Simulated assay, not measured.
Amino acid sequence: MTSRPLSNAILEWAALILPALLAAAASADMPDDLAPLDMFQECPDCPEMIVLPLGEFVMGAPMEQSAEIDFNPRAEGEPRGRRTEQPIHTVTIDLPYALARYEVTTGEFMRCVEAGACSYTPTQLFDEEDYSDAEKLRLPVRDVNAYDIGEYLGWLNGLVGAEVYRLPTEAEWEYAARAGTTTRYATGENLPLDRFNALKPDADPLSLRPVPVDAMDASNAWGFQHIAGNVVEATMSCWTEFHLGLETSGEYLAAAQHEGKCERIVVKGGSYNSGQLYSRPATRGGPRVTARSYFLGFRIARDLEFERK
């Protein structure tokens, strides 16, 4: 199954309507003339954001894409592959949003700690001896769980005076990661390991490290850096064994908001210590909300309208 391309009419409509929506939702420092794929930074401590075009994409992947990393028992003749990436379905992006250009950095998170709004200090700030002090601050923050992320988002929303920053849903994340493509990766059928920080077949495990968020040329066509590899990224979607199969990003957002307290969340994107097949846009994982690890981080989304029905 392949996605239908974004029509010129949709893009033209987005270019006309987005500035009005942005102006309605803007803080004092928010630009009011943004168009799809424009970048903005709302406040000095806010991450750089990229405006997403409205459109649609095919979510999920055929079973054969993940056959090599399906280690579950299968009956003879039963197809191998990760069923968690099913069903394949078309999702329309019907609500305007922006997504962070980079994974949230240790430096950005530590400003929340220093302000007294984040109660947990990620330990990797102090135990990475292979980086300069400046590089440490540009590493993706790790060793944080869903509750730590929630404190950071609360602090960030306090800075701009509106409840607009949050984690993306898994549908919003996958749409941005695919960047209009329908191939296994946003780069085609292969992920260039000279550009992206994923496990190389002949790598020495002792050499595996995250890299600063602006290191390497690891961006997709829409400008999202390290959305494949580097660290696995948290979403706001509660873990489900299969995709919900919803038709719009608004429905995915409503489902995530009404799930209540998750025991597990969906994570996406692969990491520096996982093979490239785990870095496909379709790959899903489901750690517990309390879990902290050295390969799990996050990037944030921003709503581009205040009121939602």
Rank of each mutant, 00 (worst) to 15 (best):
G260S: 09
C46G: 11
P44Q: 10
A28K: 06
T183P: 02
I265G: 01
F295D: 15
Y272N: 12
L277V: 10
P36F: 09
K136I: 15
N145C: 15
G158F: 06
R80T: 14
E78M: 13
A256T: 08
L153Y: 00
G286Q: 02
P5Y: 01
N273H: 05
P140F: 00
A9F: 13
M110T: 04
L304D: 05
D143R: 10
R195S: 09
W155M: 07
T235N: 02
P168S: 11
L159A: 02
L156F: 00
P19L: 14
P212H: 10
G285L: 11
W13T: 10
T169S: 11
L159W: 00
R82V: 03
E76Y: 00
E251P: 04
T187Q: 09
A100S: 12
L125R: 15
T2K: 06
L199C: 02
R280I: 06
T92W: 11
L139I: 14
V232R: 11
T106V: 11
L191N: 09
Q86H: 14
A134E: 15
D45C: 04
P79D: 09
C238N: 04
V211K: 11
L191K: 08
Q257M: 13
D133I: 08
T248Y: 03
S207L: 13
H89E: 10
V51E: 11
M216E: 10
P44W: 00
I300V: 15
T123D: 13
A291D: 14
A186V: 01
A28T: 15
A35L: 14
S119P: 09
N145A: 09
N190D: 15
H89R: 06
W173K: 03
T182C: 01
A28W: 10
A28N: 11
Q276Y: 00
H258K: 13
L167G: 07
T92L: 08
T105W: 03
D148M: 11
P140E: 10
K200Y: 03
M110Q: 14
G60Q: 06
E64L: 08
K268S: 06
I93T: 07
L34A: 07
E251R: 11
L6A: 12
E233Q: 15
E68P: 02
Y272I: 07
N220M: 03
A301G: 10
L95A: 08
V266F: 01
K261D: 09
E307D: 13
R195C: 10
L95T: 12
L18N: 08
E233F: 00
W155A: 09
A215V: 08
D32A: 08
L99V: 12
V231T: 10
W13C: 02
L34E: 05
A134S: 12
E174N: 03
A228V: 04
P281S: 04
L125S: 10
E48L: 15
P62R: 03
D217L: 12
P168Y: 00
A115K: 11
P168V: 06
E78N: 05
R83D: 13
P36T: 02
P36L: 03
E85V: 05
A256L: 11
H226F: 00
Y131L: 09
R288G: 00
D204I: 04
G150W: 03
G81C: 06
P212A: 00
Q65E: 15
D148S: 02
P47Q: 05
Y185A: 07
V113W: 08
Y294A: 14
H226R: 05
L34K: 13
M216H: 01
G223F: 01
D133Q: 14
P287D: 05
A254C: 03
A23C: 13
D194Y: 03
T169C: 07
A171T: 07
A26G: 13
N190K: 07
P281H: 01
